[in-house]
Design a protein around this nucleic acid. Structure first.
Lengths: 288, 288
DNA sequence: ATGCGGATGAAAATATTATTGCAGGAGTTA
DNA sequence: TAACTCCTGCAATAATATTTTCATCCGCAT
């Protein structure tokens, strides 16, 4: 059954046995196989920063018939993607479990598409501007959506914002009192809305902070508490919601904020780099 | 140079003025532009049943810079088709900010699609089974990916699993020692891999636990430490990765696990319902 | 019929692209 | 440190692909 697998699998498989230069080439291809399919030896060599010889040797190393062989294999991938296309018609021989997972991914894509169609760009821009302007931002979430809140907080911190996460932890609840006019509160909650989230927002509402919520339906109890509401589908209601669409929304919002604050963001990031370096936060680029 | 229009339009436009042989070539291209993109002069000549000379003359006749020029134009089409999900052509009169955000969502969709197309269903099922069988599961993540780990942990808890989250908190590090053969460790990390995550996994590796990792590229330092690796794209490398595809993957995995454990999961959930009710976790369904 | 103009293909000429031989260099071991 | 092994890039070479040349053919008007 060896021949049914794609050249990409083969590259990944042989990756550990590759020389440094070969890995550079592998990286280029794996990062964007579709583009590589259009490259000739020179292009690939330039992108990988190695000589052309190394590229052709790489191709034979993979067991291809010279570079053209590798090229053809990559083109196969493009072809398959074009024909099976985005309809995800993966092989018919998939079992029950595989069918289900494909179904799941398809639904996530669907969710994002839906969210996109329903979103009001004006509202999005308004929310972005509020976030850009407000130095203090609160995030209310609980249970499964805490992960979303954490994600949001993490990146807002990188942008220099003061972000307080309210997840139901009694230790932080006192901080709620600080919020007032001019502050921004972000509420996140989906069907079977946690009571706690609602109550929190209800309190903040009285303090006249500006509230935006991310929820699933207009009938959500969060909506009447919000100055601006965004709707992101979470798929079939079950005990296991998909938070993919909301995460996509939050990421998009963060990017918009970041792009708006690009000057300041760049400065902060620069300082952060030093800090990270000093603490050795990141793995050094692959040795050898 | 009004290059905004596609070469296909130009071919159609000039069709009436073409000679019979040229029309033969045009037919071949128009019938399947994507395949033609990978043809050389000889291939195209053979398919159209004309000589090679006629093909090159055809290319210059179209105003292309020789046959390679035509080739490039066709490849452009393929590229566009690969990068823009055909469905979302609502690039109407949106402003700058709106363009960016639409672009972002589109990329997330693309990421999920890519992840799916590149995933090995067999590996997915293997991972699912490991998770189903193992009572103790560890999750290693840090910084931005903590949100993913939390999400994963939250739902595995609902499924009755013992899940320990290792995020770099020194207070939990001692729990690492508990892991051994038969246990499952899940590592999550993306480009500019946090050193901490890598070291953690390195330790666990020695203890013979089964390790699965979710990362972006085969060149990731997490891969050599793993028994099973899954690749999920995170979009353009920047300080702000999109964790949408990884989240989609994790959600899918959770659903698969849950569906596999349906009997037990249902029981646990039933008990949980009582618990939730007693604590009044959820907002009561709205009146009306 | 005959000569003319455009179109075409075979093949030579040219340009491009891929491969290989070779030497230098980095790392490793004795 | 010396000897060895691998890896790599340069440059020469080989292979392919593309373009051009040129002879021919076909239809058409004189």
């Amino acid at each position: 059954m060896g021949e049914s697998r794609s050249i990409l699998d083969r590259i990944a498989e042989l990756y550990p046995t590759m020389s440094p230069s070969q890995r550079l080439i592998a990286d280029v291809i794996l990062r964007d196989p579709e583009s590589s399919a259009f490259c000739n030896v020179a292009d690939l060599a330039r992108q990988a920063g190695v000589s052309e010889s190394t590229v052709t040797r790489f191709a034979t190393f993979l067991g291809c018939k010279g570079f053209p062989g590798l090229s053809r294999s990559l083109q196969e991938i493009v072809r398959r993607r074009l024909t099976t296309g985005q309809r995800f018609q993966l092989t018919t021989s998939l079992g029950q479990a595989e069918q289900e997972i494909v179904q799941h991914f398809r639904q996530d894509v669907q969710n994002i598409a839906l969210m996109m169609e329903r979103m009001d760009p004006k509202a999005f821009v308004r929310a972005r501007d509020r976030l850009v302007e407000s130095p203090r931002i609160g995030v209310v979430c609980s249970r499964s959506t805490v992960s979303l809140g954490q994600f949001f907080q993490f990146y807002l911190h990188l942008l220099g914002k003061d972000v307080i996460l309210f997840t139901g932890d009694p230790r932080t609840i006192d901080l709620l009192q600080r919020f007032g006019p001019g502050d921004v509160m972000v509420g996140i909650g989906f069907s079977r809305y946690a009571r706690w989230t609602v109550e929190h927002l209800r309190y903040v509402r009285k303090k006249d902070s500006w509230i935006m919520v991310i929820t699933d339906y207009p009938s959500s109890p969060l909506v009447p508490l919000a100055d601006e509401a965004f709707f992101t589908p979470t798929g079939i209601p079950s005990h296991l919601d998909s938070l993919v669409a909301p995460l996509s929304f939050l990421t998009g919002l963060l990017r918009a904020v970041s792009s708006r604050m690009s000057q300041k963001a760049a400065e902060i990031l620069q300082e952060m780099e030093d800090l990270w370096a000093q603490f050795g936060i990141y793995e050094p680029p692959s040795s050898v």
